[in-house]
């Protein structure tokens, strides 16, 4: 290592920096699929309509081939006693909250993946196993996932869950917006079964218009807020409610896309690999100069 002249040094450096530059162009192409289609689909959840029958929970499990008790057991309302979250065994759950407008009719709220327009799980995933599809779904690719659970850390709604009890091939489980069903023209299972059509499936832009209309024509029934219109930069699933969303266990992630800061830092540090190569060059320069000085001594 001590024995090496200037020509060697420059030659090797040049070859290697070219190699890195080549690497960097590949890298920027390897973005995850992130098409934000104009007519991406969404679901408008009108929590003032939901009756908490939990048929959606049952239909979801059947559609995703998860083990489930018979449908009749879902009418058991004691399940509402504690706040439940989507889990590896149930990709969607309904929670019940008291309704300030009418104590006899509690507010029921279905929760599942919000299918963000700028999903932090997609941005975070180390291998790009998460993707935002053209129809709005955020889906997970079992062939890529390494099970690092960074998506769970990143998700502002704390939705993805992990099969902690599986030693082999544990999966990240989350609502996939029934990607396999919508692909063949079917409705998402929960939307199809809902007896009161709490869930309206349609193009997101149209749903926002419908939601605005509903608020305008029933100002007593709804608070003037479409949750998901701007939250976390917008989500495919939108919610209407009769009370503040914080009271029905919705987090406030702010209106900016979650991956914004981290991605700009990430791309700032890398910026087509210029800063690292530059830094490399500086270090090389220092190394060479100090070596020269040493030799001069």
């Amino acid at each position: 290592m001590q024995k090496q002249n200037r020509r060697d040094f420059l030659k090797t450096s040049a070859i290697l920096s070219t190699a890195i530059a080549g690497l960097s162009t590949n890298k920027t192409k390897a973005k995850p699929k992130e098409i934000l289609s104009e007519d991406r689909m969404g679901v408008l959840v009108d929590t003032t309509v939901c009756i908490g029958c939990r048929n959606c929970e049952w239909a979801c499990k059947v559609a995703h081939e998860l083990p489930t008790k018979p449908k009749e057991s879902y009418s058991d309302r004691t399940a509402f006693k504690k706040l439940r979250r989507p889990s590896e065994g149930a990709l969607t759950v309904v929670n019940e909250f008291s309704n300030p407008q009418n104590l006899n009719i509690p507010t029921d709220v279905k929760v599942q993946c919000m299918h963000c327009d700028h999903p932090s799980c997609v941005s975070a995933c180390i291998v790009g196993a998460m993707s935002k599809e053209e129809n709005g779904s955020v889906i997970w690719d079992t062939d890529k996932c390494i099970g690092c659970r960074y998506c769970m850390v990143a998700c502002p709604f704390q939705v993805p869950s992990f099969q902690y009890d599986k030693a082999l091939n544990p999966k990240i489980m989350k609502c996939d917006f029934c990607f396999e069903r919508t692909k063949i023209g079917k409705l998402p299972a929960c939307v199809e079964i809902c007896p009161v059509e709490t869930l309206t499936y349609g193009p997101r832009s149209e749903l926002i218009k419908i939601a605005r209309d509903k608020i305008k024509h029933n100002p007593d029934r709804y608070i003037d807020h479409i949750y998901g219109e701007n939250e976390a930069g917008g989500t495919s699933w939108l919610y209407l409610a009769n009370q503040d969303f914080a009271k029905i266990a919705f987090p406030n992630p702010g209106d900016k896309p979650m991956p914004g800061t981290s991605e700009s830092i990430q791309h700032g540090i890398f910026a087509y690999f210029v800063p690292p190569v530059f830094f490399y060059a500086i270090l090389g320069g220092i190394m060479w100069i100090t070596k020269k000085r040493k030799e001069a001594e």
Binding site: N26, K27, G128, K144, I265
Partner: peptide
């Protein structure tokens, strides 16, 4: 890392499947 990730046998995946947006990938 291999112990913590659910699918330790896929630890090599980041070499093949790249996501330049991910800090973890970096």
């Amino acid at each position: 890392v291999s112990v913590d990730i659910g699918r330790w046998y896929y630890i090599w995946h980041p070499l093949v499947f790249w996501n330049g947006n991910s800090a973890l990938f970096e």
